[in-house]
Nucleic acid binder design. Structure first.
Lengths: 160, 160
DNA sequence: AGCCTTTCGTTGAATCTTCAACCACGACCC
DNA sequence: GGGTCGTGGTTGAAGATTCAACGAAAGGCT
């Protein structure tokens, strides 16, 4: 199954791959730091709040939330617990499926996301969108759409 | 300094930005998992070993290492400690600057990286390069080169 | 009904990262 | 020489994420 002689990355592939790796760590670190400094939110927390704010009635099932940000369920459980402790989200059990739990944005949560969003978007522009040609950024979108498709279709085989 | 009415992302910017976010988390998770499953290395550890393997004499100063992967010094200290515990890297103090510490790939470390690299590169191709048009991927490189430049030039202001 | 399998979500421990404080040394200045 | 400041690196605790195990409910199947 595995090839003998790997196809190493050529010079430009290598360069682009590394640029992506370090650029991404710098970008994520910076967006995270900005959110923490000004709004006491981590980037993952922010992403969760955004999903909730867009959801009908500001509430979502845990599993749906996990899928939409591509985090593990365990991780979402912990994140929601922190947000709940901070008063930004509340949990309630689901009517139709008694296993289910719904996370719901509180009024404080709605306020928090509305406060944070403008700064966050400004960061995304300043550190990313403003620097990139529109077509180049569209290419980024295409590439990572394909990546998501591929990895959602073919998850890691988990031998058990 | 901050605008009143933020320039929200338009539909396609929004789409591309989210595709990048979730695509990146899926991609990083998968590359990390593959490395752990088959080679007992995390992706950050792998990246460190690669830098060392490319360095002259297979050794590098801690600060240089930290810069080259864009991790904090503290993080590199911990990572190198783990790698040292695993016998893949050794530390030695630097001759010219007595504050300095050099990390050096051991024979076992060299062997580990040579074992892991083909699988890792195969993953990078399968989950990313093979899915993307060459020009699109080149665009990714350009975009994140620009991001790195911007964020290295303008680090977060740290009020003290 | 009973049984088996899958899904939903949580838990607590292990692992990894961040954070703040710290020491040792070098560089510069006087 | 004696300050002062910045840099290089480490430390341990706090915080976040992963991991493995689990209980509860749903969905088949016979």
């Amino acid at each position: 199954m595995s090839e003998r002689t790997p196809r190493w990355l050529n010079r430009s592939e290598q360069h682009a791959w590394r640029a992506y790796l370090v650029g991404t760590t710098l970008l994520m670190d910076r967006l995270d730091r900005d959110l923490r400094d000004k709004h006491d939110l981590s980037l993952p927390e922010y992403e969760i709040l955004v999903r909730l704010s867009e959801a009908e009635d500001h509430r979502m099932r845990m599993a749906m939330l996990a899928d939409s940000v591509s985090h593990s369920r365990s991780r979402v459980t912990h994140t929601i617990s922190r947000l709940e402790r901070a008063g930004l989200v509340s949990r309630s059990s689901c009517a139709s499926d008694r296993r289910g739990v719904e996370a719901c944005l509180t009024e404080a949560g709605r306020a928090a996301i509305e406060r944070a969003a403008p700064d966050h978007v400004r960061g995304v522009r300043e550190y990313l969108l403003d620097l990139a040609d529109d077509n180049d950024f569209a290419a980024v979108g295409r590439v990572f759409d394909a990546v998501s498709d591929q990895l959602v279709e073919n998850p890691a085989v988990d031998i058990r």
